[in-house]
């Protein structure tokens, strides 16, 4: 190898401005600004300038965003969690059962739901890090299993406020306070509670990744597992915990889903994991691990959230929305690859 201070030269040649734009954060922010710009131009007769539009854009992205918080932790370790959509459905069913049918208070339902999600993650994590099953396969199995469990527990039908009585008739009960709280808006109706929950999750995930030793371990394991092991990093523990937390976030998303739908639907959350992955990837976190972060994912969540909103206020048909989203994912990932080349 020719020894030459490549890094020193490369950075000195760039100006501060170009470095900002070329940084991963700069790229992700540019993508978001582009979408917002499209929204400013095609503003659907001013609909884009109404605060309710922005509130709804963020609200609709929030459940996906909460999933993306956990997904970021897993993807940083060079893994993937396909089970989050099914875990969301499982937790939604359990949560609705506890809150509606058993009339349990929120302070028990919320932690219990998070524990259910975390347990699913713990199983996936153990399969990946102890049994050395590929993350794709292990979480695929968990995805199918959790969906089945959700259907088993709910008897295949939605767990709604129509509660079956002892004599076989149905009686409608009130929507639990927990669900009404989560589905409400605060600050003069300007922001949804689910959006605040997403921000809280993003903050937790961000702190974990950039301020905790465990987060450093995740980057190390994702960047170079062998070097990490030989540096005394507890690889198995760190990786398992990433899946556990991913499950916990899926649990939180499940609570929000149940609250918004006012029921536990065992069919909920299908393909949500793919949207969460897309949000992480558009942000610039590499699927090969060791790079990225929660700030980037937050930008990715906004990008996809606003993209959907801009397209829907302009009455673009769903078929076109899906196709465009696919194209944009490819473009976003491609620009990130050219940065590294």
């Amino acid at each position: 190898m020719i020894d030459q201070p490549r890094g020193d030269l490369a950075t000195k040649q760039q100006t501060t401005a170009s470095r900002l734009i070329l940084s991963p954060g700069g790229r992700a922010a540019t993508a978001l600004l582009l979408v917002v710009f499209v929204g400013l131009v095609f503003n659907a007769d001013g609909a884009f300038f109404k605060s309710a539009t922005h509130r709804d854009a963020l609200r609709q992205a929030s459940v996906y965003g909460i999933l993306a918080c956990g997904m970021t932790l897993v993807i940083v370790t060079a893994g993937i969690d396909l089970a989050v959509g099914s875990v969301l459905a499982l937790v939604a069913v359990c949560c609705a059962t506890m809150a509606i049918h058993w009339n349990w208070p929120g302070w028990i339902v919320v932690p219990a739901s998070m524990v259910i999600g975390g347990l699913c993650g713990a199983v996936s994590g153990t399969l990946v890090s102890r049994q050395k099953i590929q993350p794709f396969i292990a979480t695929l199995a968990m995805m199918v299993f959790a969906r089945g469990l959700a259907k088993y527990l709910s008897g295949g039908s939605k767990v709604s406020t129509a509660v079956k009585q002892a004599d076989g008739t149905f009686e409608y009960v009130d929507v639990p306070y927990l669900f009404r709280l989560i589905d409400s808006r605060v600050l003069a109706d300007s922001v949804s509670v689910v959006t605040l929950i997403f921000f809280a999750c993003a903050t937790i995930s961000w702190i974990a990744l950039s301020h905790f030793r465990w987060g450093r371990f995740l980057y190390a394991v994702g960047g170079n597992e062998e070097a990490s092991r030989l540096s005394g990093v507890p690889v198995t523990w760190a990786r398992t915990l990433a899946y556990v937390w991913c499950g916990v976030f899926a649990g939180i998303a499940g609570i929000c889903q149940a609250a918004q739908e006012q029921q536990g639907d065992p069919e909920a959350g299908v393909a949500y994991e793919l949207i969460a992955i897309a949000m992480v990837v558009i942000g610039g976190t590499s699927l090969s691990g060791g790079r990225g972060g929660m700030m980037l994912t937050t930008l990715g969540v906004f990008t996809i959230g606003y993209l959907e909103k801009v397209l829907s206020i302009n009455a673009v048909p769903e078929a076109w929305r899906l196709m465009l989203t696919g194209v944009i994912i490819v473009i976003a990932v491609q620009t990130q690859r050219s940065r590294r080349a």
């Binding site: 980057y219 170079n224 070097a227 030989l230 060791g290 790079r291």
Partner: peptide, 12 residues
Amino acid sequence: RSGLVMSQSVIS
């Protein structure tokens, strides 16, 4: 292969 985490900073 087994010494450094190349994607991480000097500090890390």
